[in-house]
Computed example of a mutant assay.
Amino acid sequence: MTEHPKVYLFDLDGTLLDSAPDLAAAANHMRVVRGLEPLPFETLRKTASSGARGLLGAAFGIRPEDAGYAEMAKEFLDYYEEHMADHSRLFDGVPEMLQDIEAQGARWGIITNKHARFVHPLIKFHMLEPAVVVCGDTLKVSKPNPEPIRFALKSINAKASEAIYAGDDKRDIDAANGADVFSVAVQWGYLGSPQPVQDWCADLIVHNPSEILGIELTK
């Protein structure tokens, strides 16, 4: 016997929200003030799911363990915070998908590695009303650790067997699989992982948000 999920959990950047334009703009702003040419958007877009670490790595070849990274990360995040709603938008089909989930009487939530100082203003700006939000600094661990998903389910008194988790990065799928939640890889996202999406061990790969509404779980 099968039934639709009662809980739909999502990554934020690259899954619900196309935040890459503002993230890329922050990285290119830092390049320009240093006398460097801006990089093409597509070069930076694929790193957007990795936040400051990914964007600074692509823009400057700097890693978190390198000298000066902390200062550059602060500069990046401070600029991004001021401009994070300039061009961000929900992906096509996402508003309709969320409306249909709510119309079914199901609940939905966000589990992201993005920190709360960015997440909650973006949720408010885009007029989203998730039942639960777990940010990258809510717990001491973040994805690919499965604990944020477990924490979200516990927060709304839901079972793993009645939930799905959808994301655009392999760490999303690893977290979902680790939490025994039906895992969904979304191909409209940034897909920044080096492995092809077909190798992520997702339970399902979808190409547009409407496909998520067709998921049925085995009871």
Rank of each mutant, 00 (worst) to 15 (best):
L217P: 08
K6I: 00
R31T: 06
S155W: 15
L9D: 00
A52L: 11
A176C: 09
T43K: 14
Q104T: 13
M1L: 15
G136F: 12
R53Y: 02
V134I: 11
A27W: 13
D11T: 14
T15L: 05
Y80K: 02
A70V: 09
A24D: 14
M30W: 03
E162A: 11
F91N: 03
R107P: 00
R45Q: 09
R150Y: 12
L153I: 07
F118R: 00
N28L: 05
V133R: 05
L139C: 04
V184N: 02
V141L: 06
D137Q: 06
H29M: 12
L12Y: 10
L39W: 03
D174F: 07
L39E: 10
E75S: 10
E96Y: 01
I212P: 14
D78F: 15
L16G: 10
D168H: 12
M97P: 02
R89F: 12
H126C: 10
A67G: 12
P64W: 10
P95Y: 15
G214E: 12
H120L: 09
G105T: 04
A73T: 01
A158M: 11
M1W: 02
A160K: 03
A185G: 11
V141N: 13
A185T: 13
D22K: 13
F151M: 00
M97G: 02
M72H: 14
Y190C: 06
H29P: 05
A26Y: 03
I173C: 05
D66K: 03
E211M: 11
E75F: 03
R31E: 15
H120P: 00
C135T: 10
D203H: 10
K74F: 06
L17E: 10
G192R: 02
I110W: 02
A70C: 01
P209K: 06
H207F: 05
I205S: 13
K124R: 15
A179M: 11
K74E: 08
P21G: 15
D100A: 15
M84E: 07
A158C: 04
L153N: 05
G51F: 02
Y165R: 05
W200D: 05
G54H: 03
V33Q: 06
H120E: 11
G54C: 02
D168S: 15
G51V: 01
A152I: 00
D199F: 00
D18M: 03
W200Q: 08
D137N: 09
S193Y: 15
L139D: 07
K46A: 10
G178H: 08
P40N: 04
I212M: 14
F76M: 11
K143S: 03
A179D: 09
K170S: 09
Q104L: 04
R63F: 13
P144N: 10
P95W: 11
N177M: 08
G178N: 09
H4F: 08
D18T: 11
A58G: 01
T138L: 04
W108P: 07
A59I: 09
